[in-house]
């Protein structure tokens, strides 16, 4: 959460608004409490995003959101007129995806960038992709940049993920959170990761979380082990080692060691010697 706010503040020009309680804010200057944009995670985690939302991607293909289900889906809310955070958010995601080795985009998971700006069109999405330097074929198979077919659906989507944003008149830009939303193969929200600096490890772990039920039932032991070794920290917005697990494993090793110790270390002494010492 803290990370999210930091990025949020970086994304909008700082001088244009004052933090609550900060001195010097004139009456005409807008005052933004960053907390209003905070995604209330516990409220939205587990929500199933309507699979019947209809979308059009940059190449003009029409599809349902549900068509992308069946694999973990990373949802990125952006707007294509953005020249601040959104290109960075998408560009960073691209670098992250290229750095992720264990999962392949397209075959293991999909990514969908959706606009929340009602003025966006497939053409603007195409321009946005071009501005980012185009999509290499390796990525384009599993990553679509899309707009909702019916702009009236936008609030349905943003409300479902708890995404709040508004148009800042002074700055002529949207103020919005920078979040990647990880959906399970059934389309339920599993994890939010924030910011422009998530690493490949957090990305992989969130994918493990998103596909947990499938991984757990398919016997992908390595994924399973990696999954239980980490636990998500809501405060830091990233995964941290699940220390109690390692402490427990260490304790178990100690216990087995104690048994071996009691059975072997006195081997050299003769029965009678101990008995009548």
């Amino acid at each position: 959460m803290r990370a999210a706010l930091a990025v949020l503040l970086a994304a909008v020009a700082l001088p244009t608004f004052a933090l609550p309680g900060a001195p010097g804010g004139g009456p005409q200057r807008s005052t933004l409490d960053p907390a209003v944009l905070r995604i209330d995670e516990t409220r939205h985690l587990g929500t199933r995003i309507d699979p019947d939302l209809r979308l059009i991607d940059a190449e003009g293909r029409r599809f349902r959101l549900g068509d992308l289900y069946g694999k973990p889906l990373v949802l990125v809310l952006s707007y294509y007129g953005c020249d601040g955070a959104c290109p960075a958010l998408n560009g960073n995601l691209r670098q992250t995806i290229e750095a992720v080795r264990r999962y392949r985009i397209g075959s293991d998971y999909r990514v969908l960038t959706v606009s929340f700006d009602r003025h966006d069109t497939p053409a603007r999405a195409r321009a946005f992709v071009k501005r980012l330097g185009g999509m290499p074929p390796a990525l384009s198979a599993g990553w679509r940049h899309a707009v909702l077919a019916d702009p009236a659906d936008i609030p349905r989507l943003t409300e479902a993920v708890g995404y709040r944003y508004f148009w800042s008149v002074q700055d002529r830009m949207f103020v919005h959170p920078n979040a990647y939303v990880f959906l399970s193969p059934e389309g339920r929200i599993v994890r939010y990761l924030y910011g422009l600096k998530i690493g490949p490890r957090d990305f992989e772990l969130a994918l493990v979380d998103a596909a947990w039920d499938r991984i757990a039932s398919s016997g992908r032991v390595l994924d399973l082990l990696v999954g239980v070794c980490f636990s998500y920290s809501y405060a830091d917005g990233r995964y941290v080692l699940n220390y109690p697990l390692f402490a427990g494993i260490g304790a178990l090793a100690l216990g087995i060691g104690l048994v071996v110790f009691s059975l072997t270390v006195f081997r050299r002494r003769r029965t009678g010697r101990i008995g009548h010492a």
Partner: peptide, 13 residues
């Protein structure tokens, strides 16, 4: 012997 250390670790944490 095998399992008590695990409990000890848990309650210590």
């Amino acid at each position: 012997l095998i399992f008590v250390p695990v409990l000890g670790t848990a309650v210590t944490m």
